[in-house]
Design a protein around this nucleic acid. Structure first.
Lengths: 131, 131
DNA sequence: CTAATTTGTATATTGTATATATACATTATT
DNA sequence: AATAATGTATATATACAATATACAAATTAG
């Protein structure tokens, strides 16, 4: 019922912290480590753990609430919802994300990661998704 | 020798334009559609094609030059280099990119894309990398 | 029933990043 | 030597990110 998700944020990354937090939580959500009924830590608590300001966490929570993952209420906190996935995925968003996948793959090649390793990582992800 | 890479940028995306350009070019580079000896279009030309300011393109070119892909010289332009991939990929960078892959995958699931489609896209990417 | 406490929310401030405008530097060609 | 075609440097406007601070709501304590 009370959930303390494991998150790590990277201050050196170009990705803004609030989005890193949202991304990390979204992974826990889609992968079922956070399930409906769970309560996330209060924004001040998680902010303390991560070493950022509580409004930054609040912004991440609100992003996920906008996506339908959370219900936020004062005094009670952030509740994980039973969420039916959107029936009609937004075309634009999906296209952008797919392109992003191939961009990141190109970055990995550019960084000198052996193709074998890259494709192994991709296949591992593919398996994870199907389970 | 003169190369006119096909690029598309998305002004609605959260990704800054200069990085979108660099990402797109990097894909052409790692996938061999741009090869050593090719000359990219002048910054003003590509900027005109894309509808952005030439300094934005210049910034993208410089990013790729920093990565060792391009040699920039005034009057001659942006030359694609013979680039030996880094022998020791930067651990931090690679970790960040791998995490990014799994974040994007989570975003796709969150957007309601059927797992089958996601894993198919991932496997397709994996195949492309190995070729 | 009221006060205190615990939560999320709203607004303002400050720093940083992005995109552009403009001027400059370099170098090949005429 | 002059011109033209490039990339580069610097300044500025704007938007975004992170924080500080004040507020609002709702549960609990007394």
């Amino acid at each position: 019922m009370a959930a303390a998700p494991r998150l790590s944020i990277d201050l050196a990354s170009v990705a803004p912290v609030y989005r890193q937090i949202a991304n990390g939580l979204r992974q826990h959500l889609v992968e079922g480590r956070l399930t409906p009924g769970d309560l996330l830590p209060p924004v001040r608590q998680l902010a303390l753990d991560l070493g950022v300001h509580f409004n930054t966490v609040a912004l991440a929570y609100r992003s996920l609430a906008d996506e339908g993952w959370l219900d936020l209420r004062r005094r009670r906190g952030a509740l994980v919802l039973e969420r039916d996935t959107p029936v009609a995925p937004q075309r634009d968003l999906v296209d952008r994300l797919l392109r992003r996948l191939s961009e990141v793959t190109a970055e990995l090649r550019s960084a000198g990661v052996p193709p074998r390793k890259i494709s192994a990582a991709l296949r591992r992800l593919a398996e994870g998704v199907e389970s």
